[in-house]
Design a protein around this nucleic acid. Sequence first.
DNA 1: CAGCTGACAGATTTCAATATCTGTCAGCTG
DNA 2: CAGCTGACAGATATTGAAATCTGTCAGCTG
Lengths: 194, 194
Amino acid sequence: MATTEILTAERILEATEEVLRRHGPAKATVVDVARVLGVSHGSVYRHFRTKAALREAVTKRWLDRTSEELAGIVAADRDPEARLRDWLAALFAAKRRKAGDDPELFATYRVLAGENGEATGRHLADLTGQLTEIVRAGVDAGVFTTADPATAARALFHATGRFHDPVYAPEWEQPGIDAEFEAVMDLVLRGLRA
Amino acid sequence: MATTEILTAERILEATEEVLRRHGPAKATVVDVARVLGVSHGSVYRHFRTKAALREAVTKRWLDRTSEELAGIVAADRDPEARLRDWLAALFAAKRRKAGDDPELFATYRVLAGENGEATGRHLADLTGQLTEIVRAGVDAGVFTTADPATAARALFHATGRFHDPVYAPEWEQPGIDAEFEAVMDLVLRGLRA
DNA sequence: CAGCTGACAGATTTCAATATCTGTCAGCTG
DNA sequence: CAGCTGACAGATATTGAAATCTGTCAGCTG
């Protein structure tokens, strides 16, 4: 690839994703990343202080992409219950799609997410923040009832964990899963309604 | 130990638990079990056709002990909502206690449960069966509303997974966990009430 | 002769030597 | 002289030979 281009953090992150996709998280080395870019591995260390920092940056990028996908639904101009259903369904669909399309890469991100709890923690806070917004809108509109929207949002997130937590990814391909998702959604939405 | 006693499946299972507790799932061998019993490992194979069968039997025993603990609550003479709360709280407490008291043994059972999906599957069916009984009692008493108690029971079980699925065990020691459990319980119970 | 032993073949695990990787930095290059 | 290289030390991973384990079975023993 165009060895004349200057080496940016962005280009390194793209190359790292490439290497992770190819080799998986256990065998992806900084030397591999440098080779893909046609530079020495010393140059990579100019942009990322450690291999852990590089992996964290890749993870953050990936998590942020998911957050952005969902932010659109929060801002949509629909009634809160429909938005809530859409948001949870979209989260499930996005995770399932990613897990199904490229299981190797998905497993890789599972490992990375497990490694740096900080980036993952911020991402979870971000998602429950989005949920809180929808719940609050519902309370304001009089269609939801709850003492504390933030607590309710966290409860919703935990209650639907089976349909977005990556540890359950293998079960997302089983036949009855959609009916199970509907059952849980119906249960928690009934619990939220005024 | 009493080498004069005859070798029963039960004695082998006890010795196996002992070995698993000591060495963990990865390093527990049939030879170790035989050594604890003071017999040759060939004798163990007289009672269990393979090492996998032995591990499955140990797992089943462990899972059945949990089921029995909870069965008492299902049969209790209290109103269904209280029984449901008790049952879910007891499941959480039992799992948390086991994980906290002997993390090594708990991790061992996690591995074993992952290995033989069949025994685990039957156990989950057993637990949701217990839940279904409580839900049905609630519907009959007019305090719960649901189209199908069995589906509702499965939804309840999934929604509270964070508080009984062993993959979440590390989080059960974190400070806010009880409040989170209460929040999820309140949400799903509101969703179930008539 | 029912129940156990222990030697055995093939599969799996351990261990130590060898190779590769991470992170640094003095010096090269355009 | 900003940005890159490549040699280096210590840490980590790979590899293959040796040790151990699984599962079988002919024969021992009480």
